[in-house]
Design a protein around this nucleic acid. Structure first.
Length: 386
DNA sequence: CGCACCGGGTTCTGCCATCTGC
DNA sequence: GCAGATGGCAGAACCCGGTGCG
């Protein structure tokens, strides 16, 4: 508590309360430029009972509290940051405020990723500029930071970030792809260049092994179809590919086609999860009167079925069957499984109400937007009441 | 005109483990 | 032995509408 009182009070007094509206040089400069020598010698070696390691920086805690940061959370996540003597919370706050972030957003960012306050203004400005190469507005970036502070702040290596962007561009990913990538999987850009390269090379190798003619194109296709690929381990992706090949007994050609098609969308799933879903499907299908060959056909034509967890999938299938739909119809139009069980249930009830014959008319009507579905029902109701 | 086909949009962080450099 | 940097993991679908064809 009373450790090094002189240092703490001085530090906390200098850039005192109204600092959130401070202009110009930010506290980190003060801290690093003016304070070090005297204060360190005066403050660090106080002869207090000496708690374990370094004590927490009281004035920092005070600042964070004033800023509305959840200090408990910050402590739990990165305790070391709270012990640092020189931090840049005020500079960071000022910087983010200038980009349009609210006090609450800023507090949330620091609470969840405390290390953010160790970044210098120069670093922040440079990194922001790099992100702005891809985003059109500051608001977009702020919203990503609010969503995932770690993605922006975890790495201090701006050079690596720049190289990553160059690398991704060199793969043939266009502006829109980069935008989608940074929006949906911002962590990709904090990966080391090496890690991203490894994944790309891995994908290219897979393509070549399977006899594909254009490995570069293949890798690019997979990435743009599945934006999460680059934040997954090659181990995971490899396991999934191996499992798909083995369990479906796919030829090289079939596998290649699957991966370049919608199969890409399930490659990032946890391998255990994917395996579970496959096993469940394999158990469930025969009980609904399907053969082995049907399972393969189903997955190849609609890989997203493996994205659906066992409980959800089973209840969805049961719901369809109960509604009088045959497995054969589902196999022919698996996309009906895209829709939630709730949605399917409601639609089946509606269809029954207007006397729609699913046997005769097929189930395509279930695979349509709400607007279209409602329009169709209205028309059917009108014509049947006439 | 109605329908089937198809692709697109939304979305995915927050934690822990391990290494590394000091 | 620290804090920082980085890798890796679990978690788990749903919906819309353009368009071309008959």
């Amino acid at each position: 508590m009373a450790a090094a009182p002189g240092l703490r009070t001085l530090l906390s007094l200098l850039p005192s309360v109204p600092w959130l509206r401070v202009f110009g040089p930010t506290p980190v400069h003060l801290a690093s430029a003016c304070l070090p020598r005297r204060l360190c010698s005066a403050g660090t070696k106080r002869s207090e009972p000496k708690p374990p390691v370094n004590p927490e920086n009281e004035s920092l805690l005070e600042n964070l509290n004033l800023m509305g940061v959840d200090v408990m959370m910050a402590r739990q996540r990165q305790p070391g940051v709270l012990r640092k003597i020189f931090t840049n919370e005020q500079g960071l706050a000022h910087f983010l405020q200038g980009k349009g972030a609210s006090r609450k957003v800023i507090a949330g960012i620091i609470s969840r990723y405390p290390r953010a306050i160790t970044r210098s203004i120069d670093h922040l400005e440079q990194r922001w500029r790099l992100w702005r190469n891809i985003f059109k507005t500051d608001e977009e970036i702020v919203s990503i930071l609010d969503r995932s502070p770690e993605s922006f702040f975890r790495s201090s290596d701006n050079g690596n970030l720049e190289k990553n962007i160059d690398f991704l561009v060199s793969l043939g990913l266009n502006e829109k792809d980069l935008y989608r990538l940074l929006t949906t999987a911002p962590r990709t850009f904090s990966n080391s260049l090496e890690l991203n390269k490894q994944m790309v090379e891995f994908l290219e190798d897979i393509c070549a092994e399977l006899g594909g003619q254009n490995p570069e194109q293949f890798a690019k296709t997979i990435i743009s179809r599945n934006l999460y690929i680059l934040i997954r381990s090659t181990k995971r992706v490899k396991t999934n590919i191996d499992n798909l090949r083995a369990s479906l007994k796919l030829s090289d050609e079939e596998l290649l086609a699957l991966l370049q098609g919608h199969g890409a969308e399930i490659l990032d799933l946890s391998s255990e999860y994917l395996k579970n879903n496959f096993n469940n499907l394999q158990q469930k299908m025969p009980s609904l009167g399907s053969r082995k060959a049907d399972i393969k056909k189903l997955i190849v034509s609609y890989p997203m079925i493996l994205y659906i967890g066992p409980d959800t999938l089973n209840s969805k299938l049961d719901c369809l069957i109960k509604g009088g739909i045959t497995m054969k119809q589902i196999l022919k139009k698996p996309k009906v499984l895209d829709y939630s069980t709730q949605n399917i249930t409601e639609r089946l009830a509606e269809l029954q109400r207007v006397g729609y014959d699913l046997k005769k008319n097929g189930i395509n009507i279930l695979d349509s937007s709400r607007k279209r579905f409602v329009a169709k029902i209205e028309k059917l109701a009108a014509s049947s009441s006439q």
